[in-house]
Design a protein around this nucleic acid. Sequence first.
DNA 1: GTTATTTTTTAGAACGATCTAAATAGGGCG
DNA 2: CGCCCTATTTAGATCGTTCTAAAAAATAAC
Lengths: 351, 351
Amino acid sequence: MPSTHAPIRRKVTLIDIAAACDVSRATVSLVLRNSPLVNRHTRERVQAELQRQGYIYNRAAANLRKRTSSSIALVLNDLANPFFAEFAAGVDEEVGAAGFVTLLGSTGESPERQQAVLGSLIEHGPGGIILSPAEGSDASRVMESLGPQMPVLLFNRELGGDLPASAHWDRLMLDNARGAELATMHLIEQGHRRIAFFGGHAQSSSCQQRRAGFMKAMKRARLKVPGDYLVESAPTRLDAARACDALFASDPAPTAAVCYNDAVALGLMLGLGQRGLQPGRNFALTGFDNIGEAAMVSPSLTTISTAPRERGRQAARLLLARLGHPQERGERTIVPVELIVRDSSCPPLAA
Amino acid sequence: MPSTHAPIRRKVTLIDIAAACDVSRATVSLVLRNSPLVNRHTRERVQAELQRQGYIYNRAAANLRKRTSSSIALVLNDLANPFFAEFAAGVDEEVGAAGFVTLLGSTGESPERQQAVLGSLIEHGPGGIILSPAEGSDASRVMESLGPQMPVLLFNRELGGDLPASAHWDRLMLDNARGAELATMHLIEQGHRRIAFFGGHAQSSSCQQRRAGFMKAMKRARLKVPGDYLVESAPTRLDAARACDALFASDPAPTAAVCYNDAVALGLMLGLGQRGLQPGRNFALTGFDNIGEAAMVSPSLTTISTAPRERGRQAARLLLARLGHPQERGERTIVPVELIVRDSSCPPLAA
DNA sequence: GTTATTTTTTAGAACGATCTAAATAGGGCG
DNA sequence: CGCCCTATTTAGATCGTTCTAAAAAATAAC
C-alpha cells in the first residue's frame, strides 16, 4: 500500500498573498520592494501574510520583467587548483555582498568545453562574466558565444587572436614579468650565476611574460641563459617532477631555478629529492602564487604573492562596476606582486 | 567630444526571429526545441536566421513558463579548503553534464551567513540544493528558509536539531567512524600503544564520529585512552600547529596520533618539527581526506581516502535523480572509505 | 458641501518563452 | 470537385513579477 503523501502545494506567489489580504498584486509587489507609497497598516497586514504563507520571492520573474540580472558567471579552468579556488572564494564573497549570485563553470583547460560552458551559462542571463580563459582559446569564438553586449572581465590570461574592436572587455592581469624578475634578482643576490627557468607551457601568455621578466633580470646582471636552461612542463606537480631530469641534462647544471608557479616548484622539489638533492640546501628555487602550501612545505617556498582571494574580490568589483557603464572603454588593470622570501632560496653551496 | 558608440541593440528574442522569417513565435519556439512538427524547409530558414541575428535562448523565461529549473545550488563552508574545492569541481562536472548550472554560495562556517546565503540562493529558484552545513546550524531554521518542497542533499555533516518529519532530505555521509577505525587499527598494528586523537571541534558531528571509530578500535585492542589524549583544535593547519603542545602535556606522551583530517595532520607535523620531533620517524600520525598535498608532503601522509571529486559527482547524481521524485522518502548514503598507507605512520622507535 | 490636493490602490499591459486548441494547407481518393 | 486525413502553423492565454497611468479614497481648503 503506497504511503499517503502530503498534498503537493503549488508555490505561493504574489497572487496568493494579494487574494488573502484582499489587495491587488501591485500593492503586494510594492510592499516587497519597501515602497514608501503603501500605507503603514496595509504593509503590516501584507507582511504578516507573506510570513504566514512562507512566500519566496521569484527573482527570475522579476528579472524578466525588469530586464535586469542578478547573477555573475565565473568560468575557470579548474577549481581543484588552489590558486583558482581562492580566487573563486574571493569572487563569490564580493558578488554575494552585492546581492548577486555566482554561476559556476569549469573548462578543464579545454577550449571546446569552454565554448560549451559559455554557451550554457549565457542562456541563464548573467549580468556579466569573469573568465580565466582556457589555454589556446580564441577571442573571436568567445565573442561569438557571448554576444557583443555582455560585460566580460578577463582574468590572468589573454585570449589568443584579435578582439573585435566592438568589445569593451576589462582585464585583470598579474604583473607576471615583474614577479619573475623579482624572483630572479633575489636568486642573483644570493650569489647564483647559473639560473634556469623551469616549468609552464611556453605558448601560454603568462609563461611568456614570466620568462620575459626572468630574461630581463638575467640580462641586466650580464648572465647567460643557455637554451636548455628553459625547461617546459605542464603546470602541475606531477609533470614538473617528471621534467626535473631535463634540468640536469645540461652541463654545467644550474644551481637554482625560477619556477613557473608553486605547483611546479613543489613538483621540482620532489624531483630533486629523487635525485638525492636537497632543495633549499644544494639547490635553490622560487615559486609563483604563494598558495597556502608554500609556507607549510619543507623547506618553505620562496615565492611571489599574488593574493588570489583579494584578486577575486577585485575582479568582482571591477565587473560589478562595469555593469553600470557597459559601453565605456575596457580597462586593463595590472596588479603588483610581492616577493616572499622563505627557505627554499638558499645561496649556492660553493659560494 | 564624446566618442560615438555603436547603437545599443536590444537583445534579440523569438519575436525578432519570427518577424524576420514571417512565421509565428510558436514556430520558432518549436524549431528551438527541435520539434519534429515543423517542416524541414521552415526549420532551415529559421535556424539560419537564429544564427544570423545571434539569438541567445532565454532560459529564465522558459523556466518561468514551464515551471522548471535548470540550476542546482551548492552551499559550502569554504572553497579554499581543498577537500571542498575538489568536491565542488565534481558537483559542477556532473551538474553541467546534465545541462544544469551550479549556483555557488559560501557560508564561512557561520550559521547566520548560511541563512542569508540560502535566502538569496533560493530566490533564484534552483531545482535543488547541495548543502554542507555550517557547524552549529540547525535543521528547522534551514527548513524555514528553503520551504518544505525544495529537494535537499546534505553532505558531510548532519544538521543540529530535529528535521521536521515532512522533509524528505537525502544525505551523503562519509563513513567517518570506519575511517578513523581503520587508521587506528593500522597504528596499532605498527606497534603503537599510546595513541591520541588529535584535532577537530568535538561538537561537530564528523569529529564525534571519527572519535567514536577511534575509541572502538582502541577498546577492541584493550588500549586505554586517557582524557588528555583527546585534543581539540580548529580544523586548520595553523590552529593544529598551535595545539601540538597540548599533546605533550600528558605523561606518558603518546607515540602516535590519529588526526581529525589532513589539514590538522599537516599542522601537527609543523608543530612536531618545532619541538624537534620528526614525524614519520619518532612520532607516527595519520590524516583524513587524502587531499592532493598528502602525497607530496615529506614524510608523505598516511590517510583515509574519501575521493572528494567523486563524492561531488555522486552528490550531484543523487540530487538530480531526486528532482524527478520529490515526494519519496529521503535516503541516507554512507560512502566507504579507504586507508592509504604512506610514510607518516612509522612503527614506534623503541618497539 | 464643493473642489483641490494628497495619499493609496489598482487594472492591465508588459518581459520572453511555452502550451493548448484550433485553424490552415496539402494530398489522396472517389 | 468535394471530402477526409495528415502535416504544419498559429492565436492567445499563461508563468510571476513590475510598470504605467489612472482611479479611488482620504484629507485639506474654501
